[in-house]
Every structure is written in structure tokens, then in C-alpha cells.
Amino acid sequence: MAWIETVVNGLLLGGLYGLIGIGLALVFGVMRVVDGAQGEFMVMAAFFAVIVLAAAPDLHPLIIFGLAILFSFCVGYVYQSWIVNRSMQSSDPLAPLLLTFGVSIILRSVMVEVFGADLRGLQLGSLSRASIAIFNINIGVMPLLTLATSIALFLLLQWMLKRTSFGRIIRATADRRDIVRLFGVKPDRVYACVMAMSVALSAIAGLFLAARASFTPFSGVERLLIAFEVVVLGGIGSFWGPLIGGLALGVTQLVGLKWDPNAGLLYCHLLFFIMILIRPSGLVASRS
């Protein structure tokens, strides 16, 4: 029974991991750019929430989350239109990668400067500790909420990309960024919107992470590492890949920890390493 509980908790954690990867996957899928700053954006959203919470302790957590997501959405739009679009004009695919990693280092340093290197946490009161029992398994309300949010966001994004006219424009731009211009579409603006969505999604992941465990300005690095592993493990270019990859990592981490309490993320990294060796295309085979 204890093992089942571990697996269930692993799946719940995996939902969060999937959410960590989705922003990175979206940007890569549409622009073929690996965004090295996604980890910092997750941390930044959490700091934003901590500040708002300190300034207005009576605000409902949902409103604070909403503000942080809106803030991240705007940050993503500006980040893409002012910085990343510029580097995408270069014919060297390495240029945006280097640039975004540069941005991540600057953001990290600025956050240390402004907030200090202390551990912070996002206290959501009783919600953080609440749990319910299903079939004798104790399940935290917060992790359950996280997984539900994650799946809902995946579905929402899928619907937006497949069923709306804006989603159609995004897919067309991903296919041929020059030809869409013949139909009046400005690729730079599409990219800015996609980056805004991506940073907003990462912000949601960052907020859930911050509610779960404390963080510092340096936490972005490990978050980005998880995002990478989730995306590659799931299968680059596949839509549901990050969620599947996240679930696999979550279960691996908790089962590993139960078996070997000192392991930390070791088994996750091992799983990732082995998968790269035997199935580099990822768990979900890519269609494109």
C-alpha cells in the first residue's frame, strides 16, 4: 500500500514537472529556440507573488496567482519582442540559445541583488497542508490541484492550437515563417504572443513549486534542468510529451527516494540518461 501511495504521489509530482516543461516545449515547438531563461521566469513569478503577498496579506491566493501570471505574460511579450526576436534574425541557431542563457544569468544576478540569497517560501495557509484520503491513501490537496491544473492547461493549450484561428496562425508560422507574411501575419508578433504564453505557463509552474518548497534566486537552474529532461524525455516536438515525461520523472523520483532516501534527483537523471541512449526520440514519438 505504501508503494502505491508513493506512485500516486509520484504522478501528482509528475503533473507539476509536466507543467515545468510545457513552456520550454511550446517555445521550442514554434520557434526552434531553446529558451535558457525559463527557469528564472519561474522563480521571478514566485518572487512577484511573495512581494504582493507581503504587501497585501489579505488578498486571496487566486488573485495573487492571477497577478503573477499576468505580470509574467507581459514580461514574456517584452522579452521576445525586444530581445529574442533580434537574435532569431541571425542565421546561427546558436545565437538565441546563447542570448537566452545570458538573460538567465542577468536575471539571476538581479534577483540576488534585489531579494538576497535567502530561502523564500510562498505560504498559502491551510491549503498547503490540507489532504484527503482516497482508498486509504492520503493525498495532499495542493498536489492534486497541481496535477488537475496541469492537465487542464495541457488540454486548453491543445484546444487553442488546434481549434482557434490564432492557433492555426501559430502552427502555420512554426511551419513557414516567411510564407505566413504573404498572408499578412507578422511572425515577430506571433512569436511574442507565444513567448508570453510560455512564460505565463512557466509562471504557473513556478508558483506551484514555490508553494511546495522554498526557493532562492538560484533555483531557476534546477527548474530549467527539470524542464529540459521533461521535454526531451517526453519527446521533442510531441504535444503530450512533456506531460508524459513529467509523470515518468515524478514517479521515478519518489520511488527512488523511498528506496534510497539519499538519492535526491539521481534516479531522474539516470532515467533521462538511459532514455537518451536507448530511445532518443522520447517516450511519445514525434509526428513532425
Binding site: S165, R168, I169, R171, A172, A174, D175, R176, I179, V180, L182, F183, G184, V185, S288
Partner: peptide, 22 residues
């Protein structure tokens, strides 16, 4: 355009609908 340059991940209908964007 030369070489047709269709949007490969869009269906025939969706490709045609890109013409409506203007």
C-alpha cells in the same frame, strides 16, 4: 510561391483558411 510552400501541419481546409487572415 515556387514549390507550393504549404503549411505542412495544417489540413487542406486550414491551409485555405490562412488566406482569410488578410
Amino acid at each position: 510561391p515556387e514549390g507550393r510552400m504549404l503549411f505542412d501541419s495544417l489540413t487542406v481546409l486550414e491551409n485555405l483558411m490562412m488566406g482569410q487572415v488578410l
